[in-house]
């Protein structure tokens, strides 16, 4: 249905679009900054005013993934000529790629930190959303004694800045040997996200009419089957939204990752800035690491975008 618009409304609409564009640009500016820095030559990364036009290069990414050391003496022309293209980039930056005794290239710490981030974020998201969905279903459908108090208790875990408990958590983790383990971080992030997941999912569960399950029950299914066959598909939108939020929280978490891990289970957020400290900071490498770090969240959100849209389930219940 085309609504009638007046000329004032039209100009207001145009103004609104301009406003939206400005806000979008403000939000995208840091991302542009990171992305452009990730492809800059090192000497252009800290110029004032910032360099906008430059020839992009991939040397920051090569440096990101390789272990390097400072060159005492420049490479001989033979050495330089024999090196593959990416190694020359490292030479050009006054560094060399570290190789082991057999001549194999040594990886930097980044890939393993990235994998750690993926493992911790994915597993903790699955756990938080899974448990949150079941808990929310229970609260939404059954009479739970002290429901209000319990829900408040669950929420109360969010009422203080998490870092407040960092020291006691660190001591407890050290005592039980969870320091610097994937499991430790997974438990921590699951616990953080659970309250959020329960509350968000409860809202979604409450909105799913209980007639659906009742229909499934009289259609000959058990409650468990009804939950999986009817409630879960209906809750897909809510589950997707909750999963995105939980994933982002776990993925971006910095403080606990910094305190609780140092090598084996360290995630990318505390690792990336640690690169600042060795020698002169190479901002291009940090930018490259940050840019790659942004991708999984963007991909994850993009994959779930259909489920994030409301209205898929509209109109099958008459009220």
């Amino acid at each position: 249905m085309a609504a009638v618009t007046t000329s004032t409304e039209r100009s207001l609409n145009r103004l609104a679009i301009v406003g939206v564009l400005i806000v979008t640009m403000i939000f995208l500016a840091p991302i542009y900054w990171i992305a452009s820095t990730a492809f800059k030559p090192r000497n252009l990364s800290t110029t004032i005013p910032p360099t906008v036009v430059f020839t992009p290069e991939v040397s920051p990414f090569v440096k990101l993934f390789t272990k390097r050391s400072q060159l005492r003496t420049p490479p001989t022309p033979e050495e330089y000529a024999a090196a593959p293209w990416w190694e020359r980039m490292v030479f050009d930056g006054g560094e060399k790629v570290v190789r082991d005794g057999k001549g194999n290239v040594q990886w930097s710490g980044y890939p393993s930190r990235f994998m750690n981030s993926l493992i911790v974020a994915i597993v903790s998201t699955i756990l938080a959303v899974g448990m949150g969905t079941l808990t929310a279903y229970g609260f939404s459908r059954f009479k739970v004694k002290g429901e209000g108090d319990l829900l408040f208790f669950i929420l109360s875990t969010r009422m203080l800045p998490p870092v407040v408990v960092a020291i006691p958590m660190f001591l407890m983790y050290r005592a039980v040997g969870l320091n610097d383990t994937h499991l430790g971080l997974i438990i921590l992030y699951t616990a953080f996200n659970l309250s959020f997941s329960v509350w968000l999912m409860k809202g979604f569960m409450d909105e799913i009419p209980k007639e659906y399950e009742e229909a499934a029950l009289v259609d000959g299914y058990t409650r468990m089957q009804a939950f999986f066959k009817v409630v879960l598909p209906e809750a897909a939108t809510g589950i997707a939204a909750t999963a995105v939020f939980c994933f982002i929280t776990a993925w971006n978490e910095y403080a606990f990752a910094l305190i609780m891990t140092n090598r084996r289970a360290q995630t990318a957020p505390p690792f990336i800035p640690s690169q600042v400290g060795s020698g002169l900071p190479d901002w291009t490498v940090i930018a490259a690491g940050t840019l790659l770090f942004l991708l999984p969240v963007a991909i994850f959100t993009f994959l779930l975008r259909n489920h994030l849209l409301r209205g898929v389930t509209f109109g099958a219940i008459r009220k």
Binding site: P209, E211, Y212, E214, A215, A216, V218, V230, P233, E234, A236, V312, T313, F314, G315, A316, I317, R318, K319
Partner: peptide, 11 residues
Amino acid sequence: MVFQSFSLYPH
């Protein structure tokens, strides 16, 4: 049973 809301599974 047939419900007033019909309760057809939307998915």
